[in-house]
Design a protein around this nucleic acid. Structure first.
Length: 111
DNA sequence: CTCGTGACTCCCG
DNA sequence: TCGGGAGCCACGA
């Protein structure tokens, strides 16, 4: 079978983000790890920043490792929080999401 | 080509 | 609790 030359990290990251199921969230570091680069969390953020709208990515399902939204206030923060609430994600004190309960857990490579 | 920057994360004091 | 430094990769000047 053909082998997959791994596309660019950027491409893999975007493909992974598209797989995040509704009602679940993933962290930047988690996505980076799934893409093969556990230290490339910043690239995940960059991918979202540059292609979230262009590639219709479920960008609102990506949060930081604290289970909180990274976007600055009045810069998408409230919108993201609202979109997640609509999917059933609940927020606790400090607008922190319980990752133990809402974090996406793909099986192996999943698809 | 070199630099600076960024929706991050980990490590050390 | 807070701050500095390193790692990672793509893009625009």
């Amino acid at each position: 079978m053909a082998k997959p030359i791994p596309q660019t990290l950027f491409q893999r990251v975007k493909a992974i983000i598209k797989k995040i199921p509704r009602g679940k969230v993933a962290t930047y570091g988690q996505i980076a790890a799934l893409a093969g680069q556990p230290r490339a969390a910043r690239q995940v953020a960059w991918a979202l920043h540059t292609s979230s709208d262009k590639d219709r990515l479920p960008w609102h399902r990506v949060i930081n490792r604290n289970g909180a939204i990274s976007l600055p206030r009045s810069r998408g923060y409230e919108l993201q929080r609202e979109l997640l609430r609509r999917e059933g994600v609940t927020f606790g004190l400090r607008d922190v999401i319980d990752l133990e309960h809402f974090q996406w857990r793909p099986r192996l490579k999943s698809k």
